[in-house]
Amino acid sequence: MRVRILPFGDRAVLAEYDSLSATIGAYRALSASTPRGLVELVPAARTVLVRVDPQVLPLDAARRWLLSVRPGDELDGPLPTTVTIAVTYDGEDLDDAARLLGITVDELIARHTGTEWTCAFVGFAPGFAYLTSASDPLVVPRRSTSRPAVPAGSVGLAGEFTGVYPRESPGGWQLIGRTDAVLWDATKDFPARISPGDLVRFTAVDR
């Protein structure tokens, strides 16, 4: 696992990896071996931000810890949480997404529901999880023009990711369906329904 460690102020370092899959593996491995003094791990597409309490875990010690982590270390950690989301596949871009993939709508739905998705990171809006699949990512481009308002619960595809809009917001993803699942609830101790490292399964409900 190749890692480049970059400075990030006096309370954090940034670990940079070669690929999205390497970053996901590193995040899981780091989460399985957290040292005392670690405050937070924040994954992104190619990086993991490591926030520390420097009085307990000095930055040099954090760097040594990052360099010591190896692929497979995540096997010592807890099993990832699996989240199931029921989807009505009737999105405005469902036909276009199937055409871009060169498959039928039924095939798109079967592949989307038949794939186990991993939350690589959360961004864009609170609770918006970027979900990826190593086996069948369903890669389609973003729309050429973004919509000014995408309804909460919309399920979309963009690039190698699938995601669910946790609230109404502008967006340019290809919309393939909708769900009633609440992805962000600020009244809860853990507001996000999906967190980095979680596994996600979609199930189809009647259209």
Rank of each mutant, 00 (worst) to 15 (best):
Y17A: 08
A61E: 15
V150Y: 07
A152V: 00
E160W: 01
R11H: 09
P58A: 05
P141T: 04
P43K: 09
A129K: 05
V155L: 12
A204M: 03
V48T: 14
D206F: 03
T104E: 11
A44V: 06
C119N: 11
A86V: 03
S31R: 15
R178L: 00
G163L: 02
P151C: 04
Q55N: 10
A186Y: 00
L79W: 07
L157R: 09
Y27H: 15
Y89H: 06
P148Q: 11
Y27K: 10
L14K: 09
L138C: 01
P148M: 05
A45M: 11
Y165Q: 01
G163Y: 05
T47A: 15
F202N: 03
L49D: 02
R36T: 13
A192F: 08
R46T: 14
V48Y: 14
R11Q: 11
L75D: 13
P54I: 05
R51A: 15
L157K: 07
S146E: 15
T47V: 12
R142I: 01
P141K: 09
I24K: 06
V105A: 14
A129N: 07
L66Q: 10
R64T: 13
S144D: 14
F128P: 02
V83D: 02
A62Y: 08
G177L: 06
I24E: 12
R99N: 05
S154E: 05
T113C: 13
D73E: 12
G123Q: 08
T47W: 06
F128R: 06
G72K: 08
Y27A: 11
L94F: 09
G123R: 04
A62W: 08
A149W: 05
A134Y: 00
A158F: 02
V139L: 03
A61Y: 01
G77I: 12
D10K: 12
V42N: 06
Q174K: 12
V13E: 02
A134T: 01
A149N: 15
G102C: 05
L183N: 09
P196C: 15
L20Y: 00
D95F: 07
P71Y: 11
Y27E: 10
P126V: 01
V155G: 06
A192E: 14
S19P: 07
A62F: 06
A149C: 11
A29Y: 11
V140P: 06
L75G: 13
A22W: 02
A134W: 00
A192N: 09
A45L: 13
G72W: 08
L59W: 02
D60P: 03
L6D: 04
D136T: 02
I109D: 09
L41P: 14
G114I: 00
D106M: 01
P43Q: 13
A86L: 00
A44N: 14
F190V: 15
T203A: 06
A110K: 07
E116R: 04
G172F: 04
Y17P: 01
R64C: 05
A152Y: 01
L6E: 14
P54K: 09
L59G: 02
G77A: 13
G102R: 09
G77F: 13
F128N: 03
I194G: 06
L131E: 06
P166K: 11
G72R: 08
T179G: 04
G77L: 12
D198Q: 12
A15M: 13
S169K: 03
A22N: 05
S154V: 03
R167I: 00
P58C: 06
E40S: 13
F124Q: 10
A22R: 08
A22C: 05
I85H: 04
A45P: 03
